[in-house]
């Protein structure tokens, strides 16, 4: 039951990552996916294995990792914007095949 929101979030994230053209929007989609994973771990821990805390710890670490990933990705997107003046993925296609 509690899995439904996390699965919907994950699906939206994948869909958004594939269809969005703006890199910031893609990053937001990635965040959705990572948050869906966190919810998943918390739900499994709470309902399947209430005796342990492994899933909770895993989601704590996953949150920290997601924050680090966002920081790095934002920095790189800002750099791209500085040199290209665009953050649209249709415009940063200099290297192909």
């Amino acid at each position: 039951m509690y899995l439904i929101p996390s699965l919907i979030m994950f699906g939206c994230g994948v869909y958004g990552f594939i269809t969005r053209k703006n890199m910031i929007a893609m990053l937001i989609s990635l965040e959705l996916m990572l948050n869906a994973v966190d919810i998943n771990f918390a739900v499994f821990n709470r309902y399947l294995f209430p005796a342990g805390h492994e899933g909770m710890f895993f989601s704590l670490f996953a949150i920290a990792i997601a924050a680090a990933e966002t920081a790095v990705a934002i920095a790189i997107i800002i750099n791209v914007y500085r040199v290209a003046k665009k953050v649209d993925i249709n415009d940063i296609t200099k290297m192909k095949f």
Partner: peptide, 19 residues
């Protein structure tokens, strides 16, 4: 410029795959 384009591609796909 290529360096930044490569980094953007790398970080987005890396985060996607790790998710």
């Amino acid at each position: 410029y290529e360096s930044h384009e490569a980094a953007a591609k790398y970080v987005l796909t890396a985060v996607f795959s790790s998710a």
